Amino acid sequence: MRSLEIHGIDDLRVVDRDDPAPGPGEVQIAVEWGGICGSDLAYWRRGVSGTAVMSHPFVLGHEVSGRVSALGAGVSGPGVGSPVTVHPARTTGPLPERLRGRENLHPDLTYLGSAAGDPHTDGAFAQTITVRADQVVPLPAGLDTRRAVLAEPLGVAMHAVTRAGDLTGAHVLVSGCGPVGLLVVLAARDAGAARISAVDLSSPARERALALGADEALESAADMSEEITVAFEASGAPASLDGILRHIARASVVVQVGNLPPTPISVTLGPIVSQELEYRGTYRFASEIEDATRLLARTPRAEQVITHVLDLEDAHAAFTTAATDPASSKVVLRLS
């Protein structure tokens, strides 16, 4: 099988590997689609994603979909040929009681395509992968495998919305209209938000936000309405966060979705005190990926998040497009 390894900064290699056979309790999947995530780009551009530092080659990718190709011993389904996506997290041991319901914060967790541990965890940008049966998420009727490649990032967006609290009737802001920000627009609307304002410096990104259901698209948070009471910072840019904290209304909630740099940053924090703001973090997701597949099945316009599809052999061009093309959003690799 062909798989995509990263060997260093700007060093992607499509290599041949043996097809992995499913062991007991495992499922083999023929991967059809793989979405390039910001963490994949970070390893490619800097060799670091968040606090995870790459020290040896490994396979990238954690946003994938495809079809079951074989079942290991003791696995009863879904059957061979079933369309599925994958929950990238794998945990070992019990979850501490104080973290009940927050499996994404499990102290012993590995994630597909991550350099957080040593050895690193190979990802899913490969024509064939094996995962534990409990990581396999069957697709609902009406959802094809191409759109389903968005399930993992939509799970991230839905978890961020959960962290914000009840959005029923709220006017919310989404700052940063990359793929996750666009999916936050979808998730917020599904959660009952009455009005959604999107913010991005890029005109194509603002246009996509409107197509995905935002009511207005702004260039700056300085123009935000005083009626906004919940904001999602989805760019990871300190200047974006600073603008939100400076201009959002009193007693509002700010959810940090985008990854901030692992170094000190300059942000005006005074309003957290003087305006009694609630600043909340959000990290990956717990079980929201199953809800994400259902939302994708009933939301065909989610397909508009995908702007480019390239073959695995064109991985370098795909990564370059995702990193540098202002007209790009989610760039997807065709693996089958």
Rank of each mutant, 00 (worst) to 15 (best):
T293C: 13
H316F: 03
A160M: 03
P22D: 07
A222H: 07
T121Q: 06
F319V: 12
G169M: 09
A73D: 15
Y43E: 08
E303K: 02
P20E: 04
V48T: 14
L41M: 13
K330G: 04
T263W: 13
A116K: 13
P57G: 15
P300A: 08
A116V: 06
P119Y: 08
A249E: 12
D314R: 11
H159P: 05
P83F: 01
T51E: 14
G74M: 04
G8Q: 06
A292C: 03
A21W: 03
I29K: 01
G38R: 09
H120C: 00
S114I: 00
S240W: 04
L210N: 11
H106W: 01
R284C: 14
F319T: 10
I228K: 04
L173N: 02
D291H: 14
G101L: 10
A124E: 08
A70W: 05
S287D: 15
Q28Y: 04
V14D: 11
D200P: 10
G34I: 00
P96L: 11
R206K: 11
G79D: 12
A327F: 10
A151H: 06
A42I: 00
D144S: 04
I228R: 05
E32W: 00
V149C: 03
L333F: 00
S65E: 00
P300T: 10
A302Q: 03
P153T: 05
D325P: 05
V15I: 14
E290A: 13
L260R: 11
Y283M: 13
R102I: 01
Q127G: 11
E227D: 14
A160V: 01
E290K: 10
E313W: 02
V15K: 12
H308P: 01
A124R: 09
D291G: 15
R250G: 05
A193G: 09
P326S: 14
L105K: 03
I29S: 02
H87Q: 09
P83C: 07
M54G: 12
L182K: 11
V184G: 08
P119E: 09
D19Y: 07
F285W: 11
E63M: 06
E32L: 11
R298A: 09
E216K: 01
P96Y: 05
G192Q: 03
E5W: 12
P326F: 13
P107E: 07
T307R: 04
I9F: 09
V267H: 06
R98T: 06
T130S: 13
R46H: 15
D19C: 07
P20D: 01
R246I: 07
P264Y: 11
L296N: 05
L150A: 00
V161F: 01
A160W: 00
G176V: 07
V137T: 10
G61K: 07
V255G: 12
A141K: 13
G165L: 02
G93K: 06
G169R: 10
R294G: 12
S49Y: 06
T110E: 13
H316V: 14
V253Q: 12
T229S: 15
I228C: 07
G169Y: 06
A286V: 03
P88G: 03
I244R: 00
G72V: 09
G117H: 15
D10S: 15
P238R: 12
Y283K: 14
L218V: 01
H62Q: 14
S197N: 08
A160S: 11
G213I: 07
D144P: 02
P78E: 04
T168K: 11
P300G: 10
G8C: 04
A221W: 02
F319E: 06
Q256N: 11
T110V: 15
V254F: 09
G178M: 05
T91Q: 12
E5H: 14
S220L: 04
